[in-house]
Design a protein around this nucleic acid. Structure first.
Length: 247
DNA sequence: AGGTCTGTTCAGCT
DNA sequence: TAGCTGAACAGACC
């Protein structure tokens, strides 16, 4: 599930834990905490107090007062839970606070991640904030299919598989088109629809809420014209589009 | 029961 | 280089 909207919700949860002091950390899952060794994150965070929470695309990080930064990523199935009623076998990384509460990365698939002092230099501008000029430059060059480029977090950050299909449908652009064939007008329209898809998904509480996303299934039909949807693998991901109105 | 599919990222190859 | 492919993980679903 996690795309930008879910990451933003997780950021708000992290922000709600500001001011709380870490008593101990469960960082024993060495896959989720790679490349750190067990105990390394715990030793670095113990005794520090959580401060501001940040997000760039799907990448999250929370600062500590006078301590290191904790980077978190939700992977494909993770979420952040604050003060859960009970611990879960799917809590892959947990902060325990001095006040008795806790904050956990809860993730069935274990593809989420926790690490100290993450470097986001390779991550592109946030999809919600990208300027028209940046979008034209970062999305419009090369020969990748436009869907693949939207998913490239170093081009722009935050768009996942569902939001990409939603935005391309709104912009009426075929996901298989090479980016170099898009006109400036099409790029500008796509940027507008990426931002609108992201914003409305954030408001509605998730990437799954989009009008096209809800129709996005085998045997699904286009919400605009009722035409049966096409499905194919684009950029390595399952992709749906309307062959009638997307060109 | 076993095979296939899945919303992400990353390494490795051409 | 840019752009694929497959691996990493483990649950959901048929």
């Amino acid at each position: 599930m996690p795309e930008l909207p879910e990451a933003e919700r997780a950021r708000l949860t992290l922000a709600a834990a500001a001011g709380r002091t870490i008593a101990d950390v469960d960082d024993r899952d060495s896959y989720v905490c790679r490349p750190h060794s067990p105990g390394e994150i715990a030793d670095a965070l113990r005794g520090h107090t959580l401060a501001d929470a940040h997000r760039l695309g799907k990448f999250l990080w929370v600062q500590t007062e006078a301590g290191p930064t904790l980077g978190l990523h939700l992977g494909m199935a993770g979420r952040i839970v604050l003060d859960p009623d009970e611990p879960s076998r799917w809590d892959r990384f947990t902060l325990r606070f001095q006040d008795g509460g806790s904050l956990a990365l809860r993730d069935k698939r274990r593809l989420g991640r926790a690490r100290l002092n993450p470097d986001h230099a390779h991550v592109g501008p946030d999809a919600e904030l990208v300027t028209r000029e940046e979008f034209r430059r970062r999305i419009g060059r090369g020969r990748a299919p436009v869907k693949a480029r939207l998913l490239d977090q170093s081009a722009i950050a935050g768009v996942g598989n569902l939001l990409a299909d939603q935005a391309l449908w709104q912009a009426r652009i075929d996901p298989r088109r090479a980016v170099s064939t898009l006109t400036t007008g099409e790029l500008d329209r796509l940027r507008r629809d990426v931002r609108s898809a992201v914003r409305s998904a954030v408001r509605a509480g998730g990437a799954h809420t989009g009008r096209f996303v809800r129709a996005r299934e085998p045997e699904g039909s286009c919400p605009r014209d009722g035409h049966p949807l096409s499905r194919a693998r684009v950029g390595g991901r399952t992709t749906y589009w309307c062959p009638e109105c997307q060109h």
